[in-house]
Design a protein around this nucleic acid. Sequence first.
DNA 1: AGGCAGGTTCTTA
DNA 2: TAAGAACCTGCC
Length: 290
Amino acid sequence: MKIRFEDDLDLLKIAESGQCFRWKRIDNGGGPAACRIIAGGRVLFVMEGADQGTFELSCTEDEYREFWSEYLDMDTDYRGIRKMALDSGDRVLSNAADAGKGIRILKQDTFEMLISFIISQRKSIPAIRSTIEKICSKAGRKLELNENEKEWLKDRGFPSEAGEDLYAFPSAQDCVRLSSDDLASCGTGYRAPYIERAAEGIISGEIDLDSMEKLRDEELITELMKIYGVGKKVASCVCLFGFHRLDFFPVDVWIERVLSKYYPDGFPFDAYKPYNGVMQQYLFFNERNL
DNA sequence: AGGCAGGTTCTTA
DNA sequence: TAAGAACCTGCC
């Protein structure tokens, strides 16, 4: 299907924004930007259309309405949020918002975010991706493209490998089936027990991510930080990218750098409520692309 | 070749 | 309560 979308949506920036680890750029030999996305046990191919503000998607309109529209957070006005930054009078933030135009905060699965950001600690982004892919291929359900999707790739000149050997992110049940050796072979290192215990907690019901939806922001992060291996940074990421609480502002080494360089007296969170998390994404993206 | 990476826990005062 | 060490492993 094809969509026209006037609000901010830049595939490559989202893929590089650090919020998702299973977006992959696909290449048909110098054509427009395109990505393969694996989420919610599904696969989506998206390509920028020939006309500005249009996109070609490999899914049907039903699938778009059912899942992808919400996943991509299509109902939130990022142009308006970005305008807050541009109008703030803060040169650093408005520059960052300009550079980060097109970034959206995806509505991703909470368990996937929990495990992904547990893995992320003290790892480079390529290493995070690699570990996650290994876990998915070891424990996740294999995903097969249907004929329409294969045709979609072929018609646009993408290699068929783009749709091969794809695996869903594993469920908690899938994860506990992995032995410690399996986990170690994925490169999880000292995080392996964190992953095991998180998955076990989900299964036993001791950790109930679904019921956490109703908690207020402060209660939510407090609950998440009770999970072994989950500190403030990881918990903030789960809140922002999994629970879609747009006011969370995860502080990692990059943001730490931004804060000490440009905001020695503190970042003015009050000015951007309830969208501080979006500002964090702009600042993070900009700092990394220096 | 060896340091360092999108942190967190554990130990020690 | 706070500061510092230890932690797996792969990527540059």
